[in-house]
Amino acid sequence: MNTFVMALRGLYGVWLREITRATRDRAQLIGGISRPLIWLLILGVGLNPYFRGEVYGEVRYVIPYTYLQFLFPAVIVLNIMYTSIQFAVSVIWDREFGFLREVLVSPMPRWLILLGKVLGGATVAMLHGGLVLILARFADVTLSLEQTAVALVLMFVLAFGLTSFGVILAARVRSFEGFGVFSNTVILPLYFTSSSVFPLDPALTRAQQAVTYPEWLVFLVQINPITYAVDALRGVLINFNQFPPLWGPLVIVAMAVVFFIIALIDFNRQ
C-alpha cells in the first residue's frame, strides 16, 4: 500500500473516530437540539409580539423579514459555534487519557492527524447546524435545494474554522473545568455581538447607526468575524445582507485558513 493511501486511511480513521464518538453521545445531540429550541422556539416566539407590527409604517426594526426569520440563521451559527468550540474538550480528553500520545507516535504526519480531528469536529458541527434547518418551517423560511446546499458548504467551512479555534483554545487550557468556563466566555460574547439578535439596518449610515446603538457596540459588531458568518448565512437563507454579500464567505474562508495554521503550530508544539 503506498504512503498516500495509508495517509488517507489514517485521516479517515481519525475523522471516523470523531464522528462515531459524537453521534453515539446522546448528551451532545441533546445539546444540539436544546439550543435551537431555546433560541428559536422560546426566545424567538417570546419576543415575536415585541417585534411585530402594530401600526403600518411603524416597526421596531426596519428589515424586510420577521424576527423569527431574522433569528433563524444566527441560531444555526450558534449551534455550530458551541459544537465546534466544545470539540476542544475532545482534544483535552485525548491528551489527558493518552490517546493523543498513541496517535502521535503513529507514522501519520501531525498535520494530517490534526486535519482528521478538525474535519471530524467540523462535520459534527455542520450536522448540528443542519439540524436547525429542520425548523425552517417553524420560522417561515422557505428553502430550495440549492440554498440548502450552499448553506451547508458555508456551515462546513465555518465549522472547520471554529473547530480549529477550539483546538487553539484547548492548547491554552489544561483542564475540562477551565475549558467549560472559558468556552462560554468566548461563545456568548461573540454570539451577542454578531448582530444575531438585533439588526444593524444596512440602509443607515454609521452616524445614523450610532443614534440607534452606542458607537462602541456598532464597533464591536463590525470587528466581530462571526457577524460576517451570520450575514453570509442570512444572505443564503433569507436573501438579506447587512454587509456586502462577498464579505461573509471571505471572512469564513479566512477564519478557516488562519485558525487552522495557528492550531497546527500549537499542535506541533504539544
Partner: peptide, 10 residues
C-alpha cells in the same frame, strides 16, 4: 425537531 416545527409560532 420535525414534530416541533409544526408548532404554531403565534
Amino acid at each position: 425537531l420535525t414534530a416541533l416545527s409544526f408548532l404554531p409560532p403565534d
